[in-house]
Amino acid sequence: MCLNNEIWTPSRLSYNIHNMVDSFNLCFKNNSQIEQVDRFIRWNNDNYSCVILNVDGSCMGTPVRASFGGIIRNNAGYYLLSFSGCVNVSSDILYAELYAIYQGLILAKSLNITELVCYTDSLHCINLLKGPPMRYHI
């Protein structure tokens, strides 16, 4: 018997199981190859030709303290301005990461930057900002 309640002979069942194992193995082999291709990372890897903002949040120390920072450069890497600060109201890393983006955008706006690319290392933030609006999230 198999998943759809159909009756299979043991040989066919065995054949299907082996086939499936092979398929799974193939999937994971392909994945590891893809990861190996993109193993080196550098600043502004996508070569955007506008102002670049890099932000980051961090939580460290005992008691835990959240802080944030960011740097604004042009596409040639020329230093324009940077900011840093600590968060007193929360020690949550997501808050720190989002606050870093927020402060970075405010600063960019005050500098009258019209074209800006913002990089963050928090995929969670990106998903929250670019995804559909949610009333609740973790």
Binding site: D56, M60, R65, S67, F83, A100
Partner: peptide
């Protein structure tokens, strides 16, 4: 690994 400067500033802020 591509965000060393921002990482430095975040720790600087702490």
């Amino acid at each position: 690994e591509g965000d060393h400067c921002a990482d430095f500033l975040a720790k600087f802020g702490a």
